[in-house]
């Protein structure tokens, strides 16, 4: 099976998020970048599926040269080759079109993404890729297995799950639980240095959205502390002040 895993390079989860240029630009100074946690799960799933010895894993990212460290990490975890589309990821539509162009030229059986990136949180790329490639897509897969060219996927729904079958090729966004996270071992890290990392030029695509300005969320007021021997007071406040019960 030929597997493509889409990797997004995102600020570490503990990063303090600040902006520059009148709050129009994300300030990357001092920010540590990591593989998007959900993409790490997607890659871990790919590594499990490739344990059959008859599969290959390519990782792809749309980003500038600074994302190459993240791609090397993906190679160390178990991808066989990496591709970087040399462009700023302007929006999900732009990213999906770049990946679709590469996927069309190289036909994959399975394309995995994360359920969402933890920076832009759109959860948009998987579905757009499915549409652009004319393939079925699952946005949030909780489990995924492949047998005889058919995928069996558990899709999350409100208050439960749906078990679906899908024909391959398939695009799937992966969620926690799809695979045990894999950690790069020494051999992986050594071999990652020599695995192929190809840089390709972007195709021309106009983004469809633009972030005009960022704000910080409104601050909350101070916490009202209630004595543990006066729980009725909490119930009273929730009822009359917050009006939530």
């Amino acid at each position: 099976m030929k597997i493509l895993v889409c990797i997004s390079h995102v600020p570490d989860t503990t990063s303090k998020i600040t902006f520059t240029n009148d709050n129009t630009t994300f300030n990357t100074a001092g920010v540590q970048f990591i593989i998007n946690p959900y993409d790490e799960i997607a890659l871990s799933k790919a590594v499990d599926l490739a344990a059959d010895g008859a599969s290959s894993i390519t990782v792809i990212t749309v980003g500038d040269a600074s994302t190459e460290a993240t791609l090397r990490k993906a190679l160390a975890i178990g991808a066989d080759s990496a591709v970087r589309v040399d462009a700023q990821p302007l929006d999900a539509w732009f990213v999906a079109n770049q990946i679709a162009a590469y996927a069309r030229a190289n036909s994959f059986d399975l394309i995995l993404t994360g359920r969402e990136s933890i920076d832009y949180n759109g959860g948009q790329v998987a579905g757009m890729l499915g549409e652009l490639l004319g393939l079925p897509s699952v946005s949030i897969a909780k489990s995924l297995s492949v047998e005889n060219g058919q995928a069996r996927v558990e899709r999350e729904i409100e208050g439960g799950k749906e078990i679906i079958t899908a024909s391959l090729p398939l695009v799937a966004g992966t969620a926690e639980g799809v695979a045990e996270p894999k950690i790069a071992n020494m051999r992986g890290i050594m071999s990652a240095r020599t695995k192929p990392l190809e840089v390709i030029a972007p195709i021309a695509v106009e983004p469809l959205t633009k972030i005009e300005v960022y704000d910080t969320p409104p601050a909350r007021g101070n916490v009202k502390l209630i004595d543990e021997n006066n729980i009725d007071e909490l119930v009273h406040l929730l009822h009359t002040e917050a009006k939530v019960i």
């Binding site: 600020p11 989860t13 998020i17 902006f19 994300f26 933890i118 920076d119 832009y120 949180n121 983004p207 469809l208 959205t209 633009k210 972030i211 005009e212 300005v213 960022y214 704000d215 910080t216 969320p217």
Partner: peptide
């Protein structure tokens, strides 16, 4: 407007 950076910021987005 939407939340971004996992609720750490709010983005005003223009839909073009």
């Amino acid at each position: 407007k939407t939340t971004t950076f996992s609720n750490k910021a709010i983005a005003s987005v223009s839909l073009q």
